[in-house]
């Protein structure tokens, strides 16, 4: 299907926020799913690029609608490109991406109104919480993307349950510029704790350090539930925490992908699983599902 660029905003560091007009996608996709974008009509780059949804549709009603570009936006970046302003609608979807190679460099130069060739939605959605829980969202860098859409979907579909959960976002990066999108969680009144490896924002260290002191403080002990997305090393540490806490968790895996729908088998995860590690995922052979689906991090009980 085809969408068109609504806005393409430069955030901190090499990160961008792209809004795309794609009504069908906005209505038919779920949190945790992704798309494969074709960023060029030429043969180089040849393959599509996978991107998790950052948001679907207009999102929850906000007490204070942020005016214009989100905080952290760098208005002076890439002069001469029509970038637009952030205006979510029921017909829009958003992606956060970091410029790392040829494909994302092309994306960073896309102007407002440019058509985008989209394959999706792909992958398995996140299961939503089913009981009042202490929810740990653990993100590394642009791994923040599927966690925002998850919380927005949860709040929209289960507003009462959402209120009964105690949710915290633990957000890590190498440096301050890796921390983008935290304000969208603050709008939802989800507290954000930040760790950067160089100490330039939040606490100095890796994000999972923030969780080590995490004995439940609440009066009534809620069962813990973990959602995570980020670098594999971070998610491996999260998997260890899940086992230690005997808490269930869901991970959205980032990896190189050829097709996005389980045909090329380039994205498999789970081979060479270290002994004792219970986290495993393999691409499902079902249509529309593949290895970026959610790794179930099972408590070892």
């Amino acid at each position: 299907m085809n969408g068109s660029v609504l806005y393409n905003l430069s955030l901190a560091g090499d990160n961008f926020l792209m809004g795309i007009f794609a009504p069908e996608l906005a209505r038919n996709s779920r949190a945790g799913q992704f798309v494969m974008l074709r960023v060029s009509e030429s043969l180089d780059p040849l393959l599509r690029r996978p991107f998790s949804f950052y948001s679907l549709g207009a999102g929850p009603a906000r007490k204070k609608q942020p005016a214009g570009n989100p905080p952290g936006t760098n208005p002076s970046a890439a002069p001469g490109i029509a970038r637009g302003t952030r205006t979510r609608s029921p017909d829009s979807v958003e992606f956060i991406y970091r410029v790392v190679g040829q494909g994302t460099r092309i994306m960073a130069h896309m102007e407002v109104g440019r058509p985008v060739d989209i394959l999706g939605p792909l992958g398995k959605p996140f299961p939503l919480p089913t009981e009042p829980s202490e929810i740990f969202l653990i993100a590394g860098g642009i791994g923040i993307a599927p966690l925002l859409v998850l919380m927005e979907e949860f709040q929209q579909r289960e507003p009462n349950l959402f209120r009964k959960c105690k949710t915290t976002l633990f957000f890590g990066g190498r440096r301050a510029a890796d921390i983008v999108g935290a304000e969208d969680f603050q709008v939802m009144e989800i507290p954000v704790r930040i760790a950067t490896e160089d100490g330039s924002l939040g606490e100095k260290g890796v994000v999972t350090d923030l969780l080590l002191d995490g004995e439940s403080s609440g009066k009534e002990k809620l069962p813990r539930l973990i959602y995570t997305c980020g670098p594999h090393a971070m998610m491996a540490a999260v998997a260890r925490l899940c086992r230690q806490w005997k808490a269930p968790g869901y991970a959205s895996l980032e990896c190189l992908m050829g097709c996005g729908f389980g045909a090329c088998l380039g994205c498999v995860v789970g081979r060479r699983t270290p002994p004792g590690r219970t986290a495993r995922a393999a691409p499902s052979q079902e249509p529309g599902h593949d290895g970026l689906g959610h790794l179930r991090l099972r408590p070892r009980v």
Binding site: D44, L46, C255, L256, C267, V268, R271
Partner: peptide
């Protein structure tokens, strides 16, 4: 067969390299 370790694919100019390792059921 489980196939080869990852990374199994790499994009190159107008093409792709794969070493899936004949993963099959």
């Amino acid at each position: 067969r489980l196939g080869n370790p990852t990374p199994r694919i790499a994009e190159t100019p107008a093409g792709m390299l794969n070493s899936i390792g004949l993963q099959n059921v």
